[in-house]
């Protein structure tokens, strides 16, 4: 089945044509072009690109997403039963951060956004097999917000710096979406 897929997901490397990627947001294009590979090399984040399956690595990138380990930090004094803790004391929880997710402008309206999101969820599901995480922390621009709402992601009101640009996908939902995607990839129709 994988051989017939029109796209393949690869970890970013130097032969990928990042300079030709354009999603319509200069900051995101710039991240992929100038920073993503360096962040990979320093272990700060992992970027995955979607490439047309029949094309070489040097072909134009259809879309990408970037993940990194993250920590949700809540001031200890939020909890009544920790009121004897020092002011700087925090409660930390492990979470994955989706830093970027974008598709090339030429693929607008072709289902690449949802495809990238589900591929991202599949990667997070694999991470959750190996390390404890409570979910995915999703950062977004106003333009990207619609995709997260289409996935019924919830505003991350628990985040200490909560604003409209932060959403969360609990690990339980990551598991069920990834399981459904696996069925699709194994050739079971979802309808």
């Amino acid at each position: 089945m994988d051989l017939e897929r029109p796209y393949r997901l690869e970890a970013l490397w130097r032969l990928h044509a990042t300079a030709r990627f354009s999603c319509g947001d200069g900051d995101i294009d710039s991240y992929l072009r100038d920073d993503a590979l360096q962040q990979m090399e320093h272990g700060l984040a992992r970027t995955f690109v979607e490439i047309e399956a029949a094309e070489p690595d040097t072909t134009k990138i259809a879309g990408f997403f970037t993940l990194r380990a993250h920590s949700l930090r809540i001031q200890a004094d939020y909890f009544d039963y920790l009121d004897d803790e020092p002011e700087e004391s925090v409660i930390e929880l492990p979470i994955i951060e989706l830093m970027y997710l974008a598709r090339d402008s030429r693929l607008k309206g072709r289902g690449m956004g949802p495809t990238l999101m589900i591929e991202c969820i599949r990667i997070v599901d694999e991470i959750a097999d190996r390390a404890g995480i409570i979910g995915v922390h999703l950062r977004t621009t106003r333009q990207g917000e619609r995709l997260y709402l289409d996935f019924d992601c919830k505003p991350f009101t628990w985040h200490p710096h909560h604003d409209r640009a932060r959403y969360v996908l609990p690990i339980r939902d990551v598991r069920v979406i990834a399981a459904s995607a696996r069925m699709i990839n194994e050739g079971n129709t979802h309808n």
């Binding site: 289902g111 589900i118 996935f151 019924d152 459904s180 995607a181």
Partner: peptide
Amino acid sequence: GITPKREKMLQVYAKVM
């Protein structure tokens, strides 16, 4: 869980793939 919206997104994914 799998809501109607997510179901739709999975269908889009299935079509693309």
